[in-house]
Simulated assay, not measured.
Amino acid sequence: MAYTAPTVAQFRTRYAAFADVASETVQYWLDEADGDTGNWSDETRPRGVMAYAAHKMAEQGLGTGAMPAGVTSFKSGTFSATVSDAQAGRTGFNSTVYGREFLDLARRNFGGPRLAYEPNVSVG
């Protein structure tokens, strides 16, 4: 199956939290993600592109949703929020659920280290 870049409509179907984000903004991040996943398998690349784009937009505060992961308490009047230490320590792709999905897909594409074995051959 040949790779087909995901559309804005497909992205919004997968990640409804970004339904109100401008189409141009979503397309911008889809295009950037497409370039950064060029060496991925055709099977997982569309999901990787969408997860990458969602992560980048979430980092910028775009999209909507329920209480963010790791928030242990929330107040509204003069705003107050408490974040768990585990969540506060997360950075990079680990800082959003979308980024963690991207990392999981990346691991599927590239796995662990490859080892080469060359037997000891003695010439006597």
Rank of each mutant, 00 (worst) to 15 (best):
T13P: 04
Q87T: 06
T78K: 14
W29V: 04
P46W: 09
D20G: 14
A54D: 08
Q10F: 00
T72F: 04
T37F: 02
L62I: 00
A51D: 08
H55K: 11
A19K: 15
V26R: 01
T7I: 05
F79K: 15
F74D: 07
R14D: 13
M50K: 13
F93C: 07
S41N: 10
W29N: 09
F93D: 01
L62S: 06
A5V: 02
A58V: 06
L30M: 01
A86T: 15
G70L: 05
A53E: 08
T96Y: 09
L62Y: 03
S23Y: 01
D85C: 04
Y15K: 01
S23P: 01
A88E: 06
Y15Q: 11
S76A: 06
R14P: 08
Q87D: 09
V21E: 00
T44K: 15
T25D: 09
A81P: 03
A53I: 06
A5N: 05
T78L: 12
S95I: 06
E24L: 13
V21A: 10
E24C: 07
T91A: 13
G92S: 10
T78G: 12
A22R: 14
S95Y: 02
M67P: 00
F79N: 11
P6T: 04
F74N: 08
D20F: 03
G70C: 04
R90Q: 15
F18W: 05
S23N: 10
K56R: 15
M50Q: 14
R12V: 02
E24S: 15
V21S: 03
W29M: 13
A5S: 14
R45N: 09
R45H: 11
R47N: 11
D31N: 15
V8T: 09
R12K: 15
G35A: 12
N39C: 06
R12T: 08
S73W: 08
F11M: 12
V71M: 14
G70P: 13
A69L: 08
F93R: 07
G48M: 02
G70W: 14
A19G: 12
S95P: 07
A51F: 02
S41L: 10
V83G: 01
G63D: 11
Q60I: 03
T91V: 09
N94M: 14
L30Y: 07
E43W: 07
Q10L: 10
D34R: 12
S95A: 15
F11S: 00
D20C: 03
F79S: 03
D42Q: 09
G77S: 13
T82G: 14
Y52E: 00
F18D: 06
P6D: 12
G77K: 11
T82A: 15
T7A: 07
A9P: 06
G92Y: 03
A19Y: 02
M67I: 09
A33W: 07
A9Q: 13
G70H: 13
N94H: 12
T13G: 01
Y15G: 11
K75G: 00
S23T: 03
E32F: 05
M50H: 03
G38A: 07
Q27H: 08
